[in-house]
Simulated scan of single mutants.
Amino acid sequence: MFFSTPDLCDQYDSLLQVMSPVFKHFGGQSMFFGEVVTAKCFEDNSVVKSMLAEPGKGKVLVVDGGSSMRCALLGDQIATRAVENQWAGIVINGCVRDVTILKTLPIGIMALAAHPRKSIRRGEGQKQLEINLAGVTLQSGNYLYADENGVIISSESLPLTTT
């Protein structure tokens, strides 16, 4: 499947929310899309690890990490598990680590920055809730489309071109 977020904006603008351009690409796929699954955690990636250990079926995990710049919520081991479980992508309002390895993985990964320190697991976090980040409000069941131009959110699946 092929798409471009500018073309989708031109065609479906009234259906879309556009995230502020705060996220950087860290994964091996810069173009990815899928149904959204949400999570919220702060400096504890327990919920990220548990969710990505489940079958992803082409979905995108969107994590509100509170914009923390003090530790990473995703590293190579959890990202590798996400690939094995067929997640299409991960967007983190926070940091990632092991970026040299992340960019070799066939998955879309976006985050605010890289940070070498791992989070501390305390078993905290929430999933499947409405979150607000990068200027948009989204919830599980929305659809996310990301490419080099940005990230857009739709409440319904958009038709894409096959190439």
Rank of each mutant, 00 (worst) to 15 (best):
E156Q: 09
M31K: 02
A53I: 10
S155K: 15
S67T: 03
G65Y: 02
L138K: 14
E156F: 04
T162Q: 12
G66A: 13
S155V: 11
L102Q: 02
S50P: 12
D10E: 12
F3C: 06
V22F: 12
P55Y: 13
L158W: 15
R122H: 04
L160D: 04
G28V: 07
D7A: 13
G66T: 10
D44W: 07
A88N: 06
A113K: 10
A114V: 10
K24G: 00
I131G: 09
Q77F: 03
K118L: 01
H25D: 08
R81P: 01
C9W: 05
D10R: 07
G123P: 05
G94H: 00
S50R: 09
F26V: 05
V22Q: 13
R97I: 04
V136T: 13
K57L: 15
K49P: 03
L61T: 06
E148Q: 11
I107A: 06
F33C: 09
A72G: 12
S119Q: 08
Q128D: 14
F33E: 01
V22I: 08
S119I: 14
Q77K: 13
P106A: 11
M69I: 14
D76T: 02
A72E: 01
E124H: 12
L112R: 13
I107S: 03
D147G: 09
T104I: 02
A79N: 00
L144C: 14
Y12G: 15
L8Y: 15
H115A: 08
L129D: 09
V136G: 06
L160W: 12
A72Y: 01
D13M: 03
V36F: 14
K59A: 10
I131M: 03
V60K: 06
E130P: 04
I120N: 05
G135D: 10
L144W: 01
I152E: 14
F23R: 00
E35A: 04
